[in-house]
Design a protein around this nucleic acid. Structure first.
Lengths: 327, 327
DNA sequence: CTGAAAGCGCTAACAA
DNA sequence: TTGTTAGCGCTTTCAG
């Protein structure tokens, strides 16, 4: 590349990075040569020399349920016109895999790390604490962040939903969700809800958990199972909208009166719900905004600006839809 | 790290990579020091020195519709126990963005590139052709691959569905899909279908396109619009299952006889469909398998094994569900 | 089994 | 405005 354009490597570097003063003439020579050769600069060497790696590691549990892709979309959009580029890693909700992925990503010396959740293995926390880049833990604010944090309080979300359910007059409440140990946020919502119900002297009447398979189909099955087992149930709280939608479709099939005989609520505000016959009660998890805010924090730190607040707690909005109403 | 363990950098390197013979004693010393310091080796330096970057670039149009995440899952799983690691880039169906993403990823000198589609800008094709790593174009086999290729023939898929529809006796067929220019595969399915219908002397009776928004809701809206405009329509072919599901729910709401009065079919075989009140006719796009095969090709080339076949055409399976039947 | 030297392809910091 | 000189932190290669 240097020979092809007849200037020093250094000048080539300056042109290609648009840094430093270069005469128009040499600039054109270099650009022409680059195009002609199909030259793609080696970022590895560049990164090593400058110790600048414009990558932001985004570590999330899964891509299978639309919530993380949306967070990602927020991150990508925010980073779009910056030097930074997101790189995603998926953990499948497995702490060991999270550890592996973090190690792998940190070994590339990223400019920032955005990682879902506040629960990590000892080793993961240590790695993140040592990483000399901003670390933003996202989704959840119930706990102690290593560095920065953007999310919502899932305990609070559970509590708020519990209040809405109680207010509407439901008393025989069932919970349907993912297997707990894997999903801390679902667990926290569950805890927030049960605690609030407990204060009102109400106990969860029944519960059912699943893992794997089509969420919509699981929602149907679990709903059927719970109704069979606990016929006097009058409210179903689903840990996500997808299984909630399945339950809704099932109950509609059966001709059950919603929200009279049974009320329903999910969690997330997935776009999918817009097309359902009834609007499921749900709570928006602010996914896109979480991604945006997290990316902005990384960006601000990276460009040396004042760091934003270390812990950003967003407020999810409750929407009652057609499935949660005073009886 | 070298000082902390009291051995040469070289020996540290050997221990950490598990390459070369090192005595048990020094191995332990090094590992102990690494753990104590929370040492994370710098892959940038390693990659530069060894000119080995164990990253596989996976370039896809979107993460919003579950089809690419599934491809990705296939890739990840296949690469799981190898040295290689997938890194995803998203193009939003924009050729310019694809170009940018490819340039960016290639500048990291990946060990392989897996990219969706066979249609690329001139510049993108040139970059890929020059890249000295395996390049696997996926999803689609209707065209000329740069290097290797794994996918299905979408034209064929459209033709096969057309045959099933004709066989069942439908004649007033409407098409509902995404805006064409963006999605080459949807366009090819459309072409495959119209061509086959044309041979039978049948013309598409109506068509409707959308972009953006909740696919389920769009499916409802588009279906309603088409029925209003072309009341004698007797079959609706949707370019993806999500809008198909929306249409299905709409028609069910309206109490329309399916598949008697109107037949329906989608495309993709998304898991979601399992939970719907009726099974939508669809065609499996072999998404996971595509990811697996593509990853295997990269892996084989990387480990110097015999390259697999250059063009792998998978066979999607047609499932008629409850919405496409002889009338 | 272990170490020393050279250099991967760039960029920071100077010099001209 | 341009070029020169040193590395960046590892791994390759070759000697011990």
């Amino acid at each position: 590349m240097s020979e092809a354009s007849g200037v020093s490597e250094m000048t080539v570097s300056r042109v290609l990075r648009g840094k430093g003063d270069v005469s128009e003439a040499t600039r054109l020579k270099v650009q022409e040569a680059a195009k002609r050769l199909g030259y793609v600069p080696n970022k590895i060497a560049g990164a090593l020399a400058s110790s600048r790696v414009n990558l932001v590691a985004v570590v999330i549990p899964s891509l299978k349920n639309m919530v993380f892709p949306e967070v990602l979309a927020g991150v990508s959009q925010t980073l779009e016109n910056s030097q930074l580029q997101p790189v995603v890693g998926v953990t499948d909700y497995l702490p060991e895999k999270e550890e592996k992925v973090l190690f792998e990503m940190l070994s590339w010396r990223p400019s920032g790390v955005i990682v879902a959740g506040l629960e990590h293995s000892e080793a993961s926390r240590a790695m993140l604490a040592r990483a000399d880049c901003p670390v933003v833990e996202i989704m959840d604010t119930d706990g102690d962040p290593i560095d920065a944090c953007v999310g919502i309080s899932h305990r609070r979300a559970g509590r708020v939903m519990a209040e809405a359910i109680l207010d509407a007059g439901y008393r025989r409440i069932g919970f349907l969700g993912t297997k707990m140990p894997l999903d801390h946020r679902a667990r926290k919502r569950f805890e927030g809800m049960t605690r609030r119900l407990g204060k009102a002297g109400v106990e969860i009447a029944d519960q059912e958990f699943y893992s794997g398979g089509s969420a919509l189909a699981k929602g149907r099955e679990m709903t059927e199972a719970m109704l069979a087992r606990t016929p006097d149930i009058d409210f179903l709280y689903y840990s996500n909208d997808m299984i909630g939608a399945g339950g809704l479709l099932y109950l509609l099939d059966k001709g059950i009166d919603i929200p009279g005989r049974i009320g329903l609520a999910g969690f997330n505000g997935v776009e999918l719900l817009d097309g359902l016959p009834r609007q499921l009660a749900t709570m928006d998890a602010c996914r896109r905004e979480i991604g945006e805010r997290a990316a902005r924090i990384v960006l601000a730190r990276h460009t040396g600006e004042q760091a934003e607040a270390e812990k950003v707690e967003l407020s999810p909005t409750l929407s009652l839809g057609d499935t949660l109403a005073r009886r």
